[in-house]
Design a protein around this nucleic acid. Structure first.
Length: 591
RNA sequence: GCACCUGUAGCUUAAUUGGAUAGAGCACCUGACUACGGAUCAGGAGGUUAGGGGUUCGACUCCCUUCAGGUGCACCA
């Protein structure tokens, strides 16, 4: 029984005994006591005054007195308007520290539930850019958070490895590539393929202009340009399984995959399962059959299959073409079934940009109407686009912030910044590289993850990402600083913390924050929000630095005070490290 | 045109899901024991929470409306 639960239970009891009303647990709201007032935990008593028929102050006094008698840990209280501020004893907080310092603190035991997180899902015609980076970091972090809160997690990547856009790169390479390979050019495979995707678009535009000059309308020119026709023919050849086309496709996709692997490794993301659209794009027709049988879908005279969602405020939606071929929805219905067949997971999260909000709304609705038992566990983690000051990023036009370049740039900045500070003279060359990698990536990841997923993000390449204030390096620095003190103080983990004198306010504040970590993990998991973890680690690091500045640790007057503060510092370092790990960020011991 | 999302200090953002005087960081100004690590800490200035109405003890949060930005409304994926 936690103290919080105790307070809720006894508050219910108090309202019953004093005012004769029965409350539900969720009618009692607790919150942190604001720091300008005495106490740590606050009960909002406004809702009770309709039962007490007394002023908020009077009501708070009565309930406060009741709680103080009933709960040992509560040693004091004060009332301000409708807020009952409770103070717990120092003994209570010191004893909390024993749990907080535990390895398993904030890591929940298995809840028996399985969840699949699908993220990344790149197209194989171009390298990854900043938008993909946001997706990858979000997906990875959410997976870590879910693990920490007790789920069994499967990380899946549904690779879009076929389609007209892939054929465009293939065709351009065939026509203009002169047999270039990653080896011959020294280019990363995904960049080489992306280069031909751009070339396709340039040449295509030239052809369009030529046709327009010859008197065609723009619309006709776009349809009649030889390049686009060849690309479409190539797609047909691919679908027909034509050998040469398949060989080219395989060769270029392999280039891309080795390029992606490098980027994934640098970002520190990984996957348990890969799905390829070349294997799944024909799925879903059985599901359509099933839907027809159940009268969830209907057939139009031309033979195309639809679902009527007008009763749900949406439109009619096509699920199968008249000629029996699939559309995007068909494929996603089939893939959803496949994933469930493979893993029997209780829940499934799709990390996909908000431009597909409507698609997923419809997809989930259809699966629900089809009566799939697992459909209610589906969730679209929608995130906002990353825009540049100049507007949207467009791969075709080359106006993107490339993932690899960005990562390199971040590491370079980390190097410059660190060298300016002159703190790494005694690091080996290898240690330095490792450190710049940690700091550069830490800054980038934190920058992208501290913002709520659904908000759109503006990224200005000219303004480099900060290393001070609410940033990854600030938290990394705090961790390194603590480690340094622990080393100097010859810190050994003790069986249990004890403290003979009164807690200092900053010490108590720090424990109160540390104590919130498990709840923060739970909320972040329920809301799929790494931003909550980021905010927490920042709040914690800030509180520690404040404490560190005001209260001597190694130079404390009493030995037990010194030991206690070392214990408190060690616990802080551990929780910072855990929190950052959930964001996919490593923390150095020195920096 | 219809639907969905977003709008908080100059910039980037938070607010325990309806609770206290809207809290931070950057940038700007002032200061910190000749340091247990200054990538830090303390202080100052900066707000009509896009505008207007409503709901109630109480609204950044819920409802209505106007405005601004974004996205979607393909027999593309």
């Amino acid at each position: 029984m936690t103290l919080e639960n105790n307070i809720i239970q006894y508050t219910i009891q108090a309202v019953k005994e004093l005012y004769g009303a029965c409350l539900d647990a969720h009618q009692v709201t607790l919150q942190e006591t604001r720091k300008e007032f005495q106490g740590q935990i606050t009960v909002v008593t406004f809702p009770f005054i309709k039962f007490s028929k007394k002023s908020p102050e009077q009501t708070g006094q009565e309930i406060g007195a009741y709680l103080k008698i009933k709960i040992d840990e509560i040693i004091d209280f004060n009332v301000i308007k409708g807020f009952l501020n409770l103070s717990a004893s120092d003994n209570f907080w010191v004893s909390r520290l024993n749990d907080i310092g535990d390895e398993g603190f904030g890591i929940f035991s298995a809840n028996g539930k399985k969840i699949l997180v699908e993220y990344s899902s790149p197209n194989t015609n171009k390298p990854l850019h900043l938008g993909h980076v946001r997706n990858n970091l979000l997906g990875f972090s959410v997976a870590e958070i879910l693990k920490s809160s007790g789920y069994e997690v499967i990380k899946a990547n549904l690779v879009n490895d076929r389609g007209i856009h892939i054929c465009k790169s293939m065709l351009a390479w065939q026509l203009f590539g002169n047999g270039e390979t990653p080896e011959s050019t020294g280019l990363k495979g995904d960049h080489l393929v992306g280069k031909y995707y751009v070339i396709f678009d340039q040449q295509y535009k030239i052809q369009i202009q030529r046709l327009i000059a010859e008197g065609q309308t723009e619309e006709d020119a776009k349809k009649n340009a030889p390049l686009i026709n060849s690309a479409q023919q190539m797609l047909l050849n691919w679908e027909a399984g034509e050998e040469q086309t398949l060989a080219l496709w395989k060769k270029m996709n392999d280039w891309v995959y080795s390029g992606f692997n490098v980027t994934y490794n640098k970002l520190g993301v990984d996957f348990d399962k890969f799905y390829y659209e070349s294997n799944t794009y024909l799925l879903g027709k059985d599901t359509v059959e099933e839907g027809l049988k159940n009268k969830v879908f209907f057939k139009k005279p031309d033979g195309s299959v639809w679902i009527d969602l007008t009763a749900d405020g949406l439109d009619e939606k096509l699920v199968l073409r008249a000629d029996g071929t699939s559309v995007y929805m068909t494929q996603d219905l089939g893939t959803a079934e496949l994933k469930y067949h493979d893993f029997k997971m209780d829940e499934s999260v799709y990390v996909v940009g908000n431009e597909q909000d409507y698609h997923f709304k419809v997809l989930f609705l259809i699966l629900n109407k089809l009566g799939k038992s697992w459909a209610k566990g589906l969730h679209h983690l929608s995130y906002g686009m990353v825009d540049l000051p100049s507007g949207k990023m467009k791969s075709r036009e080359g106006t993107v912030v490339d993932a690899d370049e960005l990562i390199d740039e971040m590491m370079r900045t980390a190097r410059e910044r660190t060298e300016e500070l002159g703190k790494v003279e005694n690091f080996s060359a290898q240690e330095k590289e490792e450190l710049y990698r940690m700091i550069g990536l830490g800054a980038l990841k934190y920058f992208l993850l501290k913002v709520e997923p659904k908000k759109r993000l503006l990224f200005d390449p000219k303004e480099s990402i900060d290393f001070q204030g609410n940033t990854g390096p600030f938290i990394q620095y705090t961790h390194a600083r603590i480690k340094s003190v622990l080393t100097k103080g010859n810190y050994q983990k003790h069986q249990s913390a004890f403290y003979s004198s009164e807690l200092k306010a900053l010490e108590r504040d720090l424990i109160v924050i540390l104590n919130k970590y498990p709840d923060t993990v739970k909320s972040a998991s329920a809301e799929y929000s790494p931003a909550l973890i980021a905010n927490f680690t920042f709040e914690l690091a800030k509180a520690f630095n404040k404490f560190y500045h005001e209260e001597p640790i190694l130079k404390a007057d009493e030995e037990d005070v010194k030991q206690f503060r070392l214990e408190l510092s060690a616990a802080t370092a551990m929780v910072l490290k855990k929190g950052m790990k959930l964001l996919g960020i490593e923390v150095p011991d020195r920096m």
